[in-house]
Write a protein that binds this DNA or RNA. Structure first.
Lengths: 338, 338
DNA sequence: TTTACTATGGTAACACTAAAAGATTTAGCG
DNA sequence: CGCTAAATCTTTTAGTGTTACCATAGTAAA
């Protein structure tokens, strides 16, 4: 790479003259500025980012730790984070925790060596199950900012971006009740996660506070080593009266719809289904799945903006939690509202 | 962050003594080493990555430019790249070109300021359509290494990782012929891309070199602003005799299966379908889609390894192209082989 | 000649490491 | 014992690319 030194030598001026010239300093004569810029242009000079980072003690880089990039929600969040970050002149270093605490810890450790100005992350499943977030707090104690999104922890005091998980599930369940559904089941493969628990609570709350609803809430959880297909098949067999499904994770709704179709349920006449999927799954379903839209793009953007606010005001010791609104989008797997 | 200077001051020794002690230099007395290490540990000292990068003129960071992270193939490739890179001590800075030449160019420009040691990338659709890759060549001319994967260009001389797109489609088509299919249609929403063209050629070649096959090849292309659903519905209407489908992109196969099912085709008795999807879509299909597996993980890993080889031997001026084997996985949407 | 200004140069600092130099201790030997 | 040579340990210096700050040379006006 071409350096200031190279330019200075070729132009027979000092390094600091070159530096000033490139910054249009008024101390430097117009002719010199022109000469310097011409050569810089010609040799494709670029200020060395690493040197500037060292000098300024800031990298303009955000460490982004994602639990599982193959989950469409996180892929979309990453998309939004990248877009918003790059529009603000930030690069992102992506780390994938693979839902493992060890990898999460490792990434935090490694990148807190000055590689990044801070982190945007969603907590790994394993960390949530163990309820062990010491490694995250340790980073915050070093005064390195972190923004948590989606999967958060009350134990960690930092800026956060979440959706109203309880409210979203509550509203979706209310909708099924308003359709007159009497046997509403919740399906979840994220039972371990904070968001999963909150959504389940919302569902339960909606059912219990409805006086006409007689059934006890039924929560079907699908764990890592179970196959959703089979579990859902069993569900239909065990609860043939089922007439409403809330699927609170990314994929179960689609699978449930598939199975219902195979088993000749009439959707939405006999059975309504609401998923938490993003619209990417719609291409795979017919009829189109009604979903709770999480506005993932907004989540990503808000995370970046909170992060940048924090950098600009590190001292600020009150933290913000931004709640992104969800939207219940009724498509073809629920009855239309009148 | 704690620096060597901080440690030196607290211990009343020089900075270089501290540095050497931490590197277990034999020049330093065991007691001093112990004292230094104890304090370093206690204060959680970490060598500043940026300073080391400046000194060594290497960042241990790879710039990864992905056209579309919402495409499962690329998400999985990124997953593999991250995993392999981090296991070799490299970080990745992720940029999303969003299929746009301008964003791709921008990312290359910005990161070639010393932020990364080189790039692993797949060419944006727009760059491929315009057949304009000057911006990529410009980086190579600056002696910054690039590994291209999946979407490559013959114009660019660098290390590459690809699959045998022609051969994979050829083989899949051959399989349908061996089933005795007489009306085989190819569906593609990646008609613009190098890989799309190669796969199409493979399909055409398989058909034309088969003497018993009478039909002319039929290629249904789905462009960005068309809806796959509708286009595929039209396909079935226009070619009711259709008995074989090769879907060469990530999603069309699943959609075709959906539609076929709706239209009461018997799969695989009356109609066989082979997709190029990754196994993530299987959860959404019943019967399970037969696919060409691209071994995406291997593609990602191979890219990283080629990249590291290149860094270790920058001078080497012959370039390598690694071809990752594909595998035709016959599931339930094709007839079993006897 | 002093003052004021213009244009440029030099130095230090960011955190680190390699190489050279310096200081101190130890060993060896007459 | 006393001196030197060798061994051991520590410090200084320089360099990575950049910029902020301070210094200086030269010129022109007062």
């Amino acid at each position: 790479m071409v350096t200031l030194k190279d330019l200075a030598e070729q132009l027979n001026v000092s390094i600091s003259t070159v530096s000033k010239a490139l910054h249009n300093s008024e101390e430097i004569s117009p002719e010199t500025i022109a000469r310097v810029k011409a050569l810089a242009e010609h040799l494709n000079y670029k200020p060395n980012k690493v040197a500037i980072s060292l000098k300024n003690n800031t990298t303009n880089t955000i460490g982004v730790i994602i639990p599982n990039i193959l989950n469409h929600f996180f892929a979309k969040a990453l998309y939004a984070i990248e877009e918003e970050a790059s529009s603000h002149g930030y690069n992102i270093i992506t780390c994938l925790s693979d839902e493992k605490k060890s990898k999460e810890m490792n990434s935090l450790q490694l990148l807190s060596d000055g590689s990044v100005d801070g982190f945007i992350m969603s907590i790994a499943e394993e960390s949530q199950i163990d309820n062990d977030t010491e490694h995250i707090k340790a980073i915050l104690n070093q005064n390195i900012p972190i923004v948590l999104f989606d999967r958060v922890s009350d134990d960690i005091i930092c800026d956060k971006v979440i959706i109203d998980d309880f409210g979203a599930a509550f509203e979706a369940t209310k909708h099924l009740l308003s359709e007159g559904r009497k046997h509403i089941v919740l399906i979840s493969d994220i039972d371990n996660l904070s968001v999963g628990k909150l959504r389940t609570n919302g569902y339960v709350q909606a059912l219990t506070e409805n006086e006409d609803y007689k059934e006890t809430p039924i929560v079907v959880t699908i764990s890592k080593n179970e196959v959703a297909d089979q579990k859902i098949n069993v569900l239909f067999k065990e609860y043939p009266l089922i007439d409403g499904i809330i699927a609170i994770d990314n994929t179960s709704g689609v699978i449930a719809l598939q199975k219902a179709f195979k088993l000749n349920y009439n959707v939405p006449e006999d059975l309504s289904i609401i998923g938490f999927s993003d619209d990417n799954v719609l291409q795979f379903t017919d009829p189109k799945l009604s979903t709770v839209s999480q506005h993932t793009i907004d989540i990503g953007k808000a995370s970046v903006n909170l992060f940048i606010d924090r950098l600009n005001n590190k001292a600020q010791n009150s933290t913000k939690t931004k709640i992104i609104k969800t939207k219940l989008i009724l498509r073809d797997t629920t009855k239309p509202v009148f």
